[in-house]
């Protein structure tokens, strides 16, 4: 029984975005998010949307898949839309039905805010979750935050914890399955009863799982010690992250986009966003 789970949503690929240095991707996604918050006018948003499509095309991922990934946020999107359409006032009254008044500004505002949420998700998922393995992300974060070690922030320790967690998630999932089967064979019932009863039925799974996880942790600690692990100090890495001209070119493109957005806000302030 092999559960081949990709946690997070990493999609195998070899696109330009896939191959960027994970450190740069973290920086780029932050830059891109700042740019999204800078955008205020319809023209600026049009530009951003265009750039998002280009970005998705560059990764070779299917836009439908990325859209599907947004389903959990549907409620927030609908809620903001409704809120903006019915509560915003403006100059151009479109519909007036008794107490309900809908203004053009309200609709535009709703569209732009939805766009903003969607773009934020696209930015983080394209740069980070879909194109970077969790391990590369951990490595990137460790090396980006390395200067904080001087302030005694346990950067290496956190990254080691993440690495080990990533390593053991599939193992523990397998184990949970085994324990569940073992308990089922003894007549345990996980699928009927009310919420409280079902939660109670999970206890005989969690306890053995915890015991085994602690035993594993103990053995792993011994094994790591045997392999001369003494913490982050004096440690080297086999794969050192190296930024290439590609990475700097990508950073340049994103910065240019940011500048374009600011200019679009200034010179084409068509229907400014009021949130």
């Amino acid at each position: 029984m092999k559960s081949d789970i990709t946690f997070g949503q990493y999609v195998e690929g070899n696109s330009l975005i896939h191959r960027l240095d994970p450190r740069m991707k973290i920086v780029l996604s932050i830059l891109y998010i700042v740019t999204i918050f800078l955008a205020k006018s319809v023209t600026a948003f049009a530009l951003l949307t265009l750039s998002a499509f280009l970005l998705i095309a560059l990764t070779g991922l299917s836009p439908a898949m990325i859209l599907r990934g947004m389903r959990p946020l549907l409620f927030i999107i609908v809620f903001t839309a409704v809120f903006n359409i019915f509560w915003m006032t403006g100059d151009t009254l479109l519909i007036s039905l008794g107490p309900i008044k809908i203004y053009l500004e309200g609709i535009i505002n709703a569209v732009l805010i939805i766009l903003r949420i969607v773009l934020l998700i696209v930015a983080t998922s394209v740069f980070l979750t879909y194109t970077t393995t969790p391990l590369a992300l951990t490595d990137g974060l460790e090396q980006l935050l390395a200067p904080l070690k001087k302030l005694h922030v346990p950067v290496h320790e956190f990254s080691m914890m993440m690495t080990i967690a990533l390593r053991f998630i599939p193992t523990l999932i397998d184990e949970t399955q085994k324990i569940m089967n073992a308990q089922k064979a003894r007549g345990a019932d996980f699928s009927t009863g009310n919420l409280l009863q079902r939660a109670k039925a999970l206890i005989p799974i969690l306890i053995p799982l915890f015991i085994s996880a602690f035993r594993r942790a103990d053995e792993l600690a011994t094994a790591m010690e045997c392999r001369c692990y003494t913490g982050g100090e004096g440690r080297t890495r086999m794969n050192v992250l190296r930024s290439t001209p590609k990475d700097w070119a990508a950073a340049f493109v994103v910065l240019v986009l940011g500048a374009a957005i600011v200019l679009a806000n200034l010179y084409f302030p068509l229907y400014g966003l009021t949130l």
Partner: peptide, 11 residues
Amino acid sequence: AFGCENLGIPS
């Protein structure tokens, strides 16, 4: 590579 990394061997 883990053990070698711990020993501080060059990449």
